[in-house]
């Protein structure tokens, strides 16, 4: 068991003792933990307006986006950001020593 970062993201050691991110749902290794986990996720970004049709959001806006981060293997959603277009990823750094 690795160190939980978010519900489905954990930091663990790979076979060589290097710290890596893993998907806690399917166990897939995402990549070295020296960067943010979001760098390894499948990212889907769409303006708010896109979410109004399904009823998720109520008001259209083209300057705001929802940014979704998925496991490239099992497609579980790690995180959702609600930001203005162009905002850098909101990182999490866990000290695990």
């Amino acid at each position: 068991m690795g160190r939980r970062v978010l519900e489905h993201i954990e930091i663990d050691k790979d076979g060589n003792g290097h710290k890596v991110y893993r998907c806690a749902k399917c166990g897939t290794t995402l990549g070295p933990a020296d960067k943010g986990f979001k760098e390894y996720a499948v990212v889907k970004e769409a303006s708010y307006s896109h979410y109004v049709d399904a009823g998720i959001l109520a008001t259209r806006s083209d300057r705001f986006v929802l940014r979704e981060f998925y496991c490239p293997k099992c497609a579980v959603r790690f995180d959702v950001e609600s930001v203005v277009k162009g905002e850098p990823y909101l990182d999490i750094k866990i000290r695990d020593d």
């Binding site: 978010l6 519900e7 489905h8 708010y48 009823g55 998720i56 959001l57 109520a58 008001t59 806006s61 705001f64 929802l66 981060f69 579980v76 959603r77 790690f78 995180d79 959702v80 609600s82």
Partner: peptide
């Protein structure tokens, strides 16, 4: 919170709708 969604979800959960 009428334009930006402010009641955000966590760990992959979605935000709630905006107020109007």
């Amino acid at each position: 919170g009428c334009e930006p969604a402010i009641a955000l979800g966590v760990a992959g959960g979605l935000p709630a709708r905006q107020g109007r």
